[in-house]
Design a protein around this nucleic acid. Structure first.
Lengths: 128, 128
DNA sequence: CGGCATCCATGCTGATACTG
DNA sequence: CAGTATCAGCATGGATGCCG
C-alpha cells in the first residue's frame, strides 16, 4: 500500500497533470499534433467541434506544460505553428493506448449501457 | 486522414468513453479497485478527497459501462463490494501507463510551468 | 490568420441533511 | 454501512465581438 503512489493519493501533483491531460480537448489536440505540425486554423478544422476559445485555452495549457511547442512567425498575416515536444511524444503513447482501447470497446460498452438502462427501467416499472 | 478514427473525430462514441474514463474521479476508482475488491466506505477512505456523492456517481457510471461490478449482500448493515471486471482490467493497463507517465514527469512539468509563468511575468513587466 | 475579452448558459461538484 | 435528495458555488465551455 505504501509503494503505490497513485491510489493512495499522496501525489496530488500527478493528479493535477492527469486532470489536465484528460480534460475535454487536450487528448485530441495531442493526438492530432502527434501526426504532424499544424497551424491554428488547420488544427481547429481537424478537431471538429472545438471552439476557437477552447482551442486557444487548451493550446496555452499544453504549451505551459511543455507538451506542445508554439512557433510564431512575425509576418502578416500571422503564422503560428504547433507541434508536440519530446515530452508530448511520450504522452502520445499512453494517449493512443487509452483511445485505442476506447475505440475497440465502443460496441461492448454501449451494449453494457443499454443492458444497464434496461435493467433500471425494469426496476422502475416494477416498483416505481 | 481517413484511416485514423480518432483525430478525425468521426467516432464521437469513443470520445464519450474517453471523457467518461477521464473524468475527475474515474481513473482513481479504477486504479484503486484494480488492486483489490473494496467496500464503499473503504474505497472512499482510500480515494481521499472524494465526496460520498461523487463516489456514488462515479461508481454508477463505471458500473453502467461494465468497467466495474457491484456486489450487494442483503444483510444488515448493508455490505456492498466493488471490483473491476475483465473489461476494466484492460483499461487498467492504459490508465496505469498514463498515470505512470504523469508521475515520472511531475517534476519536469512543474519546472516547465514555472518557466512559462516566469516568461509571462517578464512580458507583463516589460509591456504591462 | 490567430488570437483575446466579455458575457452567459450549463453542469459538475461539494456540503449538508436524511434514509433503509 | 451505503446510499439518496437537495441546494448552492464555481469552473467549464460556447457565442460573440474586437484587435494586431
Amino acid at each position: 500500500m505504501s509503494d503505490q503512489s497513485f491510489p493512495g493519493g499522496h501525489d496530488c501533483r500527478a493528479r493535477e497533470i492527469v486532470d489536465r491531460v484528460g480534460d475535454k480537448w487536450s487528448l485530441y489536440v495531442i493526438a492530432t499534433l502527434g501526426e504532424e505540425t499544424l497551424r491554428f486554423t488547420e488544427l481547429k478544422r481537424r478537431i471538429d467541434g472545438i471552439s476557437q476559445r477552447m482551442l486557444t485555452v487548451t493550446l496555452r495549457n499544453l504549451e505551459r506544460d511543455g507538451i506542445i511547442v508554439r512557433t510564431m512567425y512575425p509576418v502578416m498575416p500571422p503564422r503560428v505553428e504547433y507541434s508536440v515536444t519530446p515530452l508530448g511524444c511520450e504522452l502520445l503513447g499512453a494517449v493512443t493506448a487509452l483511445v485505442g482501447w476506447a475505440e475497440t470497446r465502443v460496441e461492448t460498452i454501449e451494449k453494457n449501457r443499454a443492458a444497464y438502462d434496461e435493467r433500471a427501467a425494469e426496476q422502475t416499472e416494477a416498483f416505481g
